[in-house]
Design a protein around this nucleic acid. Structure first.
Length: 271
DNA sequence: GCTTGAGTTCACATTACATCA
DNA sequence: CCTGATGTAATGTGAACTCAA
């Protein structure tokens, strides 16, 4: 019995976010010497080291994860038989065009082109006439993508047949679809990190300012200072900006727990 | 068991076409 | 019409993997 490798449901979108030293270069950038065009590039302009790295599980490693699936071999063997019929080399004998063609060239080439839509003509398909999927085709592809973000060869063949497309086109659609999904998710994550960054920056500025004020207070009023709690004992909740602790050292129950105010996203219980 | 080459699929970057404002 | 922007199908490349020899 064939096992569906996609039953393991690899959620392609498991993206690891990291704030800190950007030492874990993403697989993307490591492999791609020709340029990493992350939408997050230069998002954080100053020295703060804030990296958004897609985990290997989500990018290059998504593949690794998939390959690690135990049921992969069975699928691969079927892919070999099926894939050999529809491998790109079997019908993509098109030299890559480096430049856009002129309209005249295009018309000439058009004569040689065969509609990608017609499955009965697919062997002659050449040129790069771009196919627009019909609404029905797109809808079905989307439905299948919701079920599985990858296809095994059997599914691909069946879907291609249903859609009257070549298996390669179905495969390409899924590849592009995964890329779009990942890009969107990356943008969402970027926005989130941007907000975190801004919040932390603001918090840092506020704390710096507060520190300056406390220092000024300490040196301007040394006598008064003796009666006040030490600046080090004062902490401020970043959420409500109240100064906690210090004032009544005896009432330790009201003093914030250590580390409470380090988290800019939490209120203290006292607040 | 180890090596190697072929075949396949994937992510990713890029190109090029179609459409629209 | 022309043009730039945008969406996306298609292509190229390299890595990871399986399998047979």
């Amino acid at each position: 019995m064939d096992m569906d490798p996609h039953d393991t449901c690899h959620t392609d979108l498991s993206i690891g976010l990291g704030i800190g030293p950007a030492t874990t270069a993403s697989d993307d950038c490591r492999r791609r010497q020709r340029g990493c065009c992350s939408p997050c590039a230069n998002l954080f302009p100053d020295e703060t080291s804030l990296s958004l790295s897609l985990s290997d599980d989500a990018s290059g490693g998504g593949r690794t994860m998939q390959k690690a699936e135990a049921d992969r071999p069975a699928q691969l063997s079927s892919s070999r038989s099926a894939g050999s019929l529809f491998s790109p080399a079997a019908y993509v004998a098109i030299p890559k065009k480096k430049k856009k063609k002129t309209k005249e060239e295009d018309v000439g080439a058009e004569m040689e082109r065969v509609s990608c839509r017609g499955s009965d003509e697919e062997e002659n398909s050449s040129g790069r006439k771009k196919l627009r999927l019909t609404r029905e085709q797109s809808a079905l592809l989307e439905d299948r993508f919701k079920e599985h973000t990858t296809l095994n060869p059997k599914q691909k063949q069946a879907l291609a047949k249903d859609l009257n497309l070549r298996p390669r086109q179905v495969e390409v659609w899924f590849q592009n679809r995964r890329a779009r999904t990942k890009l969107k998710q990356t943008e969402v994550d970027c926005e989130f990190l941007k907000k975190c960054y801004e919040a932390l920056t603001n918090e840092n500025q506020r704390l710096q300012k507060e520190l300056q004020e406390l220092k000024a207070l300490k040196f301007a009023q040394p006598l008064l200072h003796m009666q006040l709690p030490s600046a080090a004992a004062l902490t401020m909740c970043p959420s409500c900006q109240r100064i906690n602790g210090g004032g009544d050292a005896k009432d330790s129950s009201k003093a914030p727990k250590p580390g409470h105010c380090l988290n800019p996203f939490s209120h203290s219980a006292a607040c």
